[in-house]
Design a protein around this nucleic acid. Sequence first.
RNA 1: GGGCGCGUAGCUCAGUUGGUUAGAGCGCCUGCUUCACACGCAGGAGGUCACAGGUUCGAGUCCUGUCGCGCCCACCA
Length: 898
Amino acid sequence: MQLEKVYEPQRFEPHWAQFWIDRGFFHAPAEKEPGRDVFSLVIPPPNVTGSLHIGHMLEHTEIDVTTRWHRMKGDQTLWLPGTDHAGIATQMVVERNLKATENITRHDLGRDEFEKRVWQWKEQYGGTILSQMQRIGDSCDWSRNRFTLDVGLSRAVREAFVRLYDKGLIYRGEYMVNWCPRCHTALSDLEVVHDDTDGNLWHIRYPVTGVEGRFLTVATTRPETMLGDTAVAVNPSDERYFDLHGRTVTLPLMGREIPIILDELADPEFGTGVVKVTPAHDPNDFEAGKRHNLPHVVVIGLDAEMTEAAGPYAGLDRYEARKRVLADLDAQGLLEKTAPHKLSVGKCQRCRAVVEPLVSKQWFCRMKPLAEPAIQAVEDGRIKFVPENWTKTYNEWMYNIRDWCVSRQLWWGHRIPAWHCDACGQVTVSRVDPTQCAHCHSSQIRQDPDVLDTWFSSGLWPFSTLGWPDQTPELKAYYPTTLLITGFDILFFWVARMIMLGMEMMGDVPFRTVYIHGLVRDAERQKMSKTKGNTVDPLIVTEQYGTDAVRFSLLRGAAPGTDIVLSEERMVSSRAFANKIWNAARFIFMQMEKVGVESLDLPAIDAAIAPPAAVHGETAIEDRWIFHRLNDIAARIDTAQNNYRYHEVADLIWGFLWDEFCDWYVEIKKLRINTAIDAGSPAGAAAHLGNMLRVFETALRLLHPVMPFLTEELWQRLVKKSPAIPESICMAAYPQASTAVEDEQAASDFALLQEMITRARGLRADNKIDPNAKVEGYVETSSERAASVATAGNTIIDALAGGKFDINPSSKPAGSSSASVEFAVTLTLSGTQVDAIRQRVVKRIAELEKVIGGSRKQLSSEVFVSKAPAHVIDGIREKLAQYESELTQQQAALTELG
RNA sequence: GGGCGCGUAGCUCAGUUGGUUAGAGCGCCUGCUUCACACGCAGGAGGUCACAGGUUCGAGUCCUGUCGCGCCCACCA
């Protein structure tokens, strides 16, 4: 079998992506299967009309690696995919499109027609992100794809709302909310983003009524709201204003008389200690207004334009009104001063318009009672955050949680299941659409026009997707889910709410572990954003480097708790790694052809790694070593996976395949196979090849979760098909370490052999020997172990060091030497580069003297010897002996060099 | 105002409970078109682990402080 010369992942990736889907490998059964562990996870649902960005790809890669790993381990595995209707975001996109293409607004269409258009939009673009996910290899159960506005999920939303309402946890009322004047809807606190801005603090004089020439100076950052002032406040303890208690001031520009109230709102330390009170336009003032029964004068309307109540300023935009107010105050000599003032301005998360605090009638969800069990669940470890410091952030928010405004004045979303009665004014909240008022039985009822916050439905995601409120087998089998992998940016929006709603609706946690991944940044460590234009399109880089390489790049940077820097060079090097594997496979397939082996014929794919086969009755050192290493790597990967240490998984497999398998093992097997063929022993060649195939096949399985495409492509070509062999590597058992394969002796012997070869190569380099030239030399050993390693490995040394080396020959001609603790390698050649050798020896002696000095000092310290544990002391003694022994050799070598 | 994180080789970053000569990728230097791979091979240089104290027999790893950078939360008139 021939492998194409060049690694071109684009050629086979789409094929395998489709193959996996067609064969339904990722389908999870409805029922829990006895004797199998369950691994279940729900996707953080992306915006249905969105497209994949690199942050998704990181998230999905981490999820997919974990999911494929569990599936291969034999767990009953479910990764449930789906998308979110993303209320405001989607509605905005469609509205923008209507404006651009038909020059109409949603109001021109009317609610029903507009909703139809959004559904059409969803049908048209809703598949994009799913097909992108399939293209990058996400191993989701596509038959269980869900959408937050699906019939089933809508029923769950309704059920949840009614339950909360019936328990008194949902209420409706007039409160101050964040109002986006552009999106024309209320927002939750979380949907308001704060920007630090340079503003001003204006000091305005309010004349005290009836006291000629006396003013109260208030400081404000929003002078236009003064038009709606209904009081000024001073602190009751503020002596400066004792004489004014009970008096009033005349509101400038409006001429209204408003009271001077006594309230803690006024901080005597701040400014003049006098604060204007605008109950209709400031959250603090709203509260103060309630305490003092102050009237609300609404001067800013829903469009952020001044209302009729603003008198002469009516109809002006709020900022224009600000200018005019300031000018007019100044003209009247009432503007005392203007001071620069830093302030953070709340903006709409979606459209960036400056949010206006306004009083309006909204639906709220009472959070304190929901938060308590959610805090408890994390407190007692039923839910674990990784990295665990996120627990603190979570708690911080949960302990200070405030009621959640769940209503939105949008048309795209779950309509609030509440009906208002025209006859009695009461509200009917119901699971099924009512035909009459539950209170007075009037049929004059209208459904509330508002929809629910998008996050209300996604908060139910872990169970609504499994069929809740029905008690489905899926719900039983997969809830609570095992793991959630998501970003910290939606910790409050989504994670916290899922926990609260899961506890409330299901009486159990929605997931047991929350792994919080980092942010993907560009090569300059900048946050990626569309506005900055530094975003990376995953499908473009995937096309360029191959999906596997991009996945690998992301994982290599994904140390828990750190951001991920995605750089060009990292993707280049990851592709180099994929290419390296490809070429190793190419070489292996060539060897198979040479030896006459068509494929790797296995009775089954076992999880446990089995020891290498003997060749002519003896197991070769390189086989014992590589199987030991393979086994060790499998164990380490297991640990890394269990701890979400994805960067370690990537590094481990990289180091094994490249530095150990390719650089040493394959090089030795080249020699073995050629030697066997030359000696007329096809059986010997086949035996050596067989071990190599097994190592490679096992390594492919280890690598599969990380690089699913490349490994599938190679595995399919390598492994002989049979009924006992899975159809895909993704269904093959994940390699498990086995004590039967551990071989510490081989590991240390082989390390010694490597050192002999490395030293010989070093001598070649020092002596500037033509890489193609064969050298002659010998190895002198000073231990029995070294002697047997060198003797047994003689041909390997010859081949990898490029020459003919005798082991402990009787005659030892002078030459260029490199000494170690247990052996010395000498190249017997004329005209050696004495300087280079001496330089190296001198450097080594200096190193040794330094560490010997350190060790001796440590060992001579009485406190150290008496306090340090025995194994540490013994370890240092042992090391010291080795250093000293090597030092003696190096010094002898130096003397010899003259 | 509170909270979190970071500062380790030229660059980007690893370094799980403190323990024996601190690692990787890229870059750099030397030499190689060696019959899998120049997306490669072999050899090599390069770090007082931000700074100052402290705990300890022992600190990149724990504590305190300082400096620099980033993020999150907060009704900061």
